[in-house]
Design a protein around this nucleic acid. Structure first.
Lengths: 112, 112
DNA sequence: GGGTCGTATCGGTACTTGGCGATGAAGCCC
DNA sequence: GGGCTTCATCGCCAAGTACCGATACGACCC
């Protein structure tokens, strides 16, 4: 039972900072995060989500010169990497950044 | 004419900081840098080069569980992304990090 | 010159990625 | 219910990536 109209993006849940910034696991983690960022369209999506402070739904499609199915694929990649979360809000889906993952990425890159 | 035995890694040459951290070009730049980092073996190589403060040659091959040709391929990717430089030192090649590119990557990721 | 060592490149194979249109599934509204 | 919207998923294809062994190149040493 939802109490109000509160659209999406509840406070983040897990604590995944605190993990080591070096070592084999960190290497793999950095590689998979970087891989997710390693496409211009996905960078654009991340920037878009960051600009509209909170989350927006798939009018991301309108902003990119790509078919809806392609954008959906990119969102899936970002979601699987943990960089983005998609909350179902009625018929539409509300995507937003996962700040922890972003912080983690920055920490890992900073550790290079 | 080289004056001395000075192995490699002369002072970095170009100034490629100062470029914008947002916008279409920055997006592409971030994407291509991230793509280069987006593989565990390449992360390991970067870490290796960072650890041995300066440059080392292809005993990187000894450190990785990969064939020599594969490592050479990864080095090529990193070199093309500008993250690494390879200076020929007699019969061997001396790789080292390109600190500017690394700084650039950190700045771009930080701008997310 | 002829080895030999260290790298790069080539060729091949298996897999992944990026793109699209078409189709499905889930939720709304009338 | 029927129809609409919104998004995910399913082929499908072309292109790219990862890996390897084999081969070629270049620089040294004898």
């Amino acid at each position: 039972m939802k109490p109000g109209p509160d659209p999406c993006c509840p406070p983040a849940l897990e604590a995944r900072d605190l993990r080591p910034i070096e070592g084999p696991e960190a290497d793999d983690e950095l590689a998979s995060l970087a891989k997710a960022v390693g496409h211009p369209a996905r960078v654009q999506i991340l920037r878009l989500l960051a600009r509209r402070t909170a989350c927006i739904c798939g009018d991301i499609v309108d902003e990119l010169p790509l078919a809806q199915s392609t954008v959906s694929q990119h969102l899936k990649v970002l979601k699987e990497a943990g960089l983005v979360r998609g909350d179902v809000d009625g018929p539409r889906v509300c995507y937003c950044l996962e700040p922890r993952a972003l912080r983690r990425l920055k920490a890992l890159v900073g550790g290079l």
